[in-house]
Computed example of a mutant assay.
Amino acid sequence: MIHQSHTTIFYADDDADDLDFFNEVATEINQEVSLFQDGIKLLQQLHNPPPFASIIFLDLNMPVKSGFDVLREIKNTKSSIDIPVVILTTSINPDDVKLSKSLGASLYIRKPTSINGLKKAVNHVLTIDWNNFTNSDKEFVYQH
Rank of each mutant, 00 (worst) to 15 (best):
L71I: 08
K98G: 04
D15L: 10
G67V: 06
I29S: 03
S114A: 04
V97E: 13
I56F: 07
H47E: 14
L35M: 13
L42D: 06
L46P: 07
P84A: 03
N23I: 03
A12Y: 03
Q143M: 12
G117H: 00
F10K: 00
T90M: 11
S34F: 12
P50C: 02
L99G: 01
D20P: 00
Q31E: 10
H144G: 13
Y142P: 09
F36T: 09
L19S: 03
F52R: 09
A16C: 07
K138A: 12
K120R: 11
L107D: 01
G39I: 02
K111S: 00
K138L: 13
D96A: 07
H3Q: 13
A12W: 07
S136C: 07
T90L: 10
I87H: 06
H6I: 09
I56P: 12
A26Y: 04
A53C: 10
L60I: 09
I40W: 05
P84W: 01
R72V: 07
Q44M: 05
D15T: 11
I81A: 12
D95V: 13
D14H: 05
T90V: 08
D59N: 09
Y142M: 08
Q37G: 15
L19Y: 04
S102H: 01
A12F: 06
D20Y: 11
L118P: 01
V33R: 05
N131C: 13
T134P: 04
H144A: 09
L107T: 00
S79G: 04
E139P: 02
L118W: 04
D82P: 06
L118F: 01
F68W: 02
T8M: 10
Q44N: 11
I74Y: 09
D96F: 05
G39T: 02
D13N: 09
F52K: 10
P84K: 00
A16L: 13
F133T: 02
